[in-house]
Design a protein around this nucleic acid. Structure first.
Lengths: 214, 214
DNA sequence: ATGCCTATGTAACGAACGATAAAGAATTCG
DNA sequence: CGAATTCTTTATCGTTCGTTACATAGGCAT
């Protein structure tokens, strides 16, 4: 049996270009013409390789999560709750304002860039954001179990609070805020977090001094 | 000279319906067909009365700012910086999760709901958000002059921090967060703010006790 | 070389987009 | 009344949307 004509473009490379376009223009704002132009292919190649626009977006989103948001997993591995939050916020500020790719977070930009015609995408992105928030909540609960966070602290509320700040920074970045401005927001948030420390940090054992996050 | 046939629909009423549609679907997500259906008129009436889609959006936006965001001005009038922030955040949570209109903030939804074809709209909304943030910064600077905020506090950073939280809550609301969940975020933010009080509150004279915000 | 299978380029599909031309209906002025 | 003016309705403009037929080109197996 014959194998057929081989594909003339690099799938992952094309996916990266598509991700860039979706990131910059949103799901509905990115037209097939925009995507094929950036990917250097014609529409039939796109549909043959990726299915349709929605499937292409999902694959680009997966690539985004795997590559551009990897720092979140690293942040979660920090030893103390305070340092987890510090690395998470500092890493977010760096990523959201990185000039190497569009500003803001794809899961935020994409979610709000949909009319009701793209409800599945909106739900997918809301789900991704909820997952990230839940992961942070579990990390804080673990910190609580470790005695790193006061037993009375509301981990769900704290996680949602941090997630809210990250999402707000995404809006700020999309609106043109510079990296320095985002870092100023992070400084303020961390100052507030540490000030809140008396309420949320356990007194059962002293917390280690927070290392600089970068 | 003849006066011509009188208009058969209420302009402000139609504008409110248009606002609802823009709010729910974003600027580009709202089609002329969506708008005319909700407004109960035909396209030529829309164009005759409002110019074009962009002009209609701007008029709806002005109505939004005048009506739905009036609580911001009231919050600014609170006596202390702490209470200004408290009323601002609590009022935002209430507004963003109000079931009487679409979730989230139009200036956030609309801004991120644009491809580059609608750059003027995006700039307009970014400008509105910057204005709100600047107003808060000036209010905090006034609090500083009044001795209500520590001389060393960075008013611009604090204002941007609060604006970031509000914008993040808008994303949360658009993603389906309930009013109670947003209020939990506000509680956390206010707890952090008051904990930060030792750093930002002036010691020159004691601050008045914060009244309940509602 | 010759089928066979798959990717590619061209070209186009129906649908929806924002925006209007044209004609009829409603009101005021002369 | 009729002329003038303005709104409303119907039908459509040209463009762009996401998607796909169709014919051609290019590797593999026989």
């Amino acid at each position: 049996m014959a194998m057929g004509r081989p594909r003339a473009f690099d799938v992952n490379g094309a996916l990266d270009r598509a991700l860039e376009v979706f990131w910059r223009k949103g799901y509905e704002g990115a037209s097939i013409a925009d995507l094929t132009r950036a990917m250097g292919i014609n529409p039939p190649s796109l549909y043959a390789a990726f299915g349709n626009k929605e499937a292409l977006f999902r694959k680009a989103l997966q690539r985004y999560v795997d590559e551009k948001r990897a720092f979140l997993d690293e942040a979660m591995a920090a030893p103390t709750a305070a340092e987890v939050v510090a690395r998470l916020l500092r890493g977010s500020a760096d990523m959201l304002a990185d000039p190497d790719h569009p500003r803001g977070c794809l899961t935020v930009q994409g979610a709000l860039t949909c009319s009701e015609g793209a409800d599945p995408i909106r739900e997918e992105l809301a789900c991704r954001r909820a997952d990230g928030e839940a992961a942070l909540r579990r990390r804080l609960e673990r910190a609580q179990a470790d005695g790193d966070l006061a037993p009375g602290a509301d981990c769900a509320a704290l996680a949602r609070y941090v997630a809210t700040i990250v999402q707000g920074m995404s809006v700020q970045a999309a609106g043109g805020a510079t990296r320095a401005e985002l870092q100023a927001v992070v400084d303020t948030a961390l100052l507030a977090w540490s000030a809140m420390g008396g309420a949320v940090r356990s007194r059962r054992r002293p917390s280690r001094p927070a290392a600089p996050s970068r």
